[in-house]
């Protein structure tokens, strides 16, 4: 399987294993090309579990992504999401899954963002399909996307406060009330009063 082959660091024992490892893995030269072309703008690369990942400087993101789309032929932006590492710096990671449908291979681009006012350039000018995904990340994670055509909440109601997928946003649980006494219910359900 791809995952076991990708994580094997020793030399593959047979030619068959080598061939399957190459076929299953994203082409390793894409990461090399990226580092040689952009130098220090690419903060780190790794290939783990058969998945190629590059960490990119947020300031150079548009430049790198434009190059990847036009030169690297990653025409499909498969996914865009964010991850909250609460208590760490950088706190937020925005994750892009790119797909080259010709070779075919996948590449993950990650961008770290600070806790205070996390914002990153929008990918909508490059891939219009990023529109909904960025709105979703903005809504649930509170990351601002600069130059987005319509950055509004998409899942939660417009007047909602807070960003539910952040780690410091509690999962609120209210016990079921087995009573018809309104005063009792109000006393136990402070949230319903708001």
């Amino acid at each position: 399987m791809a995952e076991t082959a990708g994580n094997r660091y020793e030399e593959p024992t047979s030619e068959v294993a080598a061939a399957s490892a190459v076929a299953d893995q994203p082409d390793p030269t894409t990461l090399d090309k990226l580092t040689t072309h952009f130098g220090k703008k690419v903060l780190g690369t790794s290939t783990r579990l058969g998945e190629a990942t590059a960490i990119v400087d947020a300031k150079a993101l548009v430049e790198v992504m434009t190059w990847l789309r036009d030169e690297g032929k990653f025409v499909l932006l498969s996914d865009l999401t964010a991850h909250d590492c609460h208590g760490q710096e950088p706190r937020f990671w925005v994750i892009y899954q790119l797909t080259n449908i010709e070779t075919p291979e996948r590449l993950r681009i990650k961008v770290g963002l600070p806790e205070k006012k996390p914002s990153v350039e929008s990918m909508v000018p490059l891939w219009p399909g990023a529109n909904f995904l960025e709105r979703e990340v903005y809504d649930l994670m509170g990351i601002e996307f600069k130059n987005h055509p319509n950055l509004t909440r998409i899942m939660m109601p417009t007047e909602w406060e807070g960003h539910p997928l952040r780690k410091d946003y509690p999962v609120v649980y209210e016990p079921v009330q087995f009573t018809h006494n309104a005063a009792e219910i109000r006393a136990r359900k402070p949230l319903a009063e708001k």
């Binding site: 499909l76 449908i101 075919p104 891939w127 399909g129």
Partner: peptide
Amino acid sequence: LALSATGPALRATGVPWDLRKTM
């Protein structure tokens, strides 16, 4: 493709992109 479409919506336009075959 620019709108990240996949599945029958993409294949109907003539792009033979099906993960069962391609990946």
